[in-house]
């Protein structure tokens, strides 16, 4: 049949395949893949218990340095805990916090955006003011208050991050919802007798998803950094649990004498955040022309 069509159609290119604008960020994808893998299976592949002290081997250097051994591939910290195992365990914390905060904040932000953007009027004005006020509140102050009230835990870190991040989703997605709500195909769906729920579920939400995806990727970087900062300041993940932030905080005194203690969590943090942001940038460039044709 297709040989009979007079014009040959171009091969289909849509969705993620439309990468005319930039090359695929293989490195970032691989790094994020590794991060996700360690985030999920970190505890299973860790060679040691990340909280197990071994004072006899404290501050052991990595295996390639003089005095290092393959027992502790990346060396040990001041309490003799295996740094590789702590990194893997920290990846789990970062992954949980990043994914948890981004998903929950994304869901809240999307909900608020749909409510405000679709309904419009006073409710929109009210919700936008709430989001603006929430954004104006400093994250660290918020964290200190919440930790002072409820103590330290991973859950609290996620709650703080959700409180800090949801307004950004709400604001960006609200304007997207307003734009799409006025698109002809949404108006058409009403002209054809569709109700509001149908318009939202069938047309608005799917068309908002690319924006949501891009935002989420960029927010993952922010969430990881924020968890690190909170843990570094001692108001994040409580010791002895490992987190890249508290590893950095513990290790900064050893910068001169045992560089491996702070440097490895630093590298892990930097590469993960950089990759998340590069991936977000690429997604933004790749998905934009497809949705704004």
């Amino acid at each position: 049949m297709s040989t009979m069509t007079p014009t040959r159609r171009a091969p289909r290119r849509r969705g993620l395949k439309r990468s005319r604008h930039s090359r695929k960020p293989w490195f970032s994808m691989a790094a994020m893949g590794l991060f996700a893998f360690c985030g999920i299976f970190g505890a299973l592949i860790a060679p040691h218990d990340p909280t197990q002290n071994d004072l006899a081997h404290s501050l052991a250097p990595p295996f390639w340095a003089e005095g290092g051994s393959t027992t502790y591939l990346l060396g040990t910290d001041q309490l003799g805990r295996d740094i590789l195992s702590r990194l893997l365990s920290g990846a789990q914390v970062s992954f949980l916090v990043a994914v948890g905060a981004v998903l929950i904040a994304g869901a809240i932000g999307l909900g608020v955006a749909l409510l405000a953007g679709y309904t419009g009027g006073r409710l929109d004005a009210f919700l936008t003011r709430v989001a603006d006020s929430a954004m104006a509140f400093p994250v660290l102050l918020l964290a200190v208050i919440v930790v002072a009230l409820y103590g330290k835990s991973i859950t609290i870190v996620i709650v703080v991050l959700v409180l800090a991040v949801w307004p950004q989703y709400a604001r960006v997605l609200r304007s997207e919802v307003i734009r799409i709500r006025n698109e002809d195909y949404v108006v058409m769906s009403k002209v054809m007798g569709g109700n509001a729920r149908w318009a939202i579920v069938r047309h608005i939400v799917p068309n908002v998803v690319p924006t949501l995806l891009v935002l989420a990727t960029l927010q993952i970087g922010f969430a990881i950094i924020a968890e690190g900062s909170l843990s570094f300041l001692g108001i994040g993940v409580p010791a002895p649990a490992a987190s890249w932030g508290n590893m950095l905080a513990d290790g900064r005194n050893f910068m001169q004498t045992a560089w491996w203690v702070p440097v490895f969590p630093g590298i892990a943090l930097s590469i993960t955040v950089l990759s998340a942001n590069l991936l977000g940038d690429w997604l933004r460039q790749t998905l934009d022309p497809a949705t704004r044709r």
Binding site: D184, Y185, M188, V191, M192, G193, G194, N207
Partner: peptide, 24 residues
Amino acid sequence: QMRQVLRNEIGFIPQDPTTALDPL
């Protein structure tokens, strides 16, 4: 009732077909 009328009785052809179809 109005949705029923729109669904069963009225067909509407839009001005600009390029924006009247959902790209997804």
